[in-house]
């Protein structure tokens, strides 16, 4: 099962390495990891997406909690939460297809952030389903490159 873990950690060097090492040493594969400071600059928030059985995830949570630099760990999967991911994708385009691609972008609330001869760059910040749907829609035009931020998630309360 897919789990979204949100961890508040000390904003210090070495913390990311510690957490990555913890996952690697136990053979847990990280699907995505996003990290950045919070409104309190001494605290960073990490959103970690991992797949595994509930037992494996219970261990992951406990091991994360054991780290001195980890302040709080939440498994958001069981809670009400909002989750979004940011994706940039550069799609092949010509004067004929540009309009079609723009139309698709509009349908998905994606933004056109760059246009140049031969390519158009879209940005979408949405759920994984909608991102996948958009990607499938523009795939026939030819995707040059795609980059994902990894999921960001917050509990609703």
């Amino acid at each position: 099962m897919r789990h979204v873990i949100s961890a508040q950690v000390e904003n210090r060097f070495g913390v990311l390495a510690h957490i990555a090492g913890l996952f690697a040493a136990r053979g847990y594969n990280i699907e995505s990891l996003a990290v950045g400071p919070t409104h309190d600059p001494s605290i960073s928030r990490m959103t970690i997406v991992v797949t595994g059985s509930d037992r494996v995830l219970e261990q992951v949570n406990k091991q994360l909690n054991k780290l001195i630099d980890v302040i709080r760990v939440q498994d958001l999967t069981a809670e009400e939460h909002v989750e979004r991911e940011l994706v940039l994708l550069r799609v092949k385009s010509n004067p004929k297809t540009r309009g079609e691609i723009a139309q698709i972008a509009e349908l998905f609330d994606a933004r056109i952030v760059d246009v140049r001869p031969g390519a158009i760059t879209l940005m979408i910040a949405d759920t994984q389903d909608r991102i996948t749907a958009l990607t499938e829609m523009v795939r026939p035009y030819g995707i040059h490159e795609l980059v994902r931020s990894g999921s960001l998630a917050l509990a609703r309360t």
């Binding site: 037992r55 219970e58 261990q59 406990k62 091991q63 909690n65 054991k66």
Partner: peptide, 8 residues
């Protein structure tokens, strides 16, 4: 005392 030892 170590929660990670329980149910491991």
């Amino acid at each position: 005392i170590d929660p990670s030892s329980i149910s491991k």
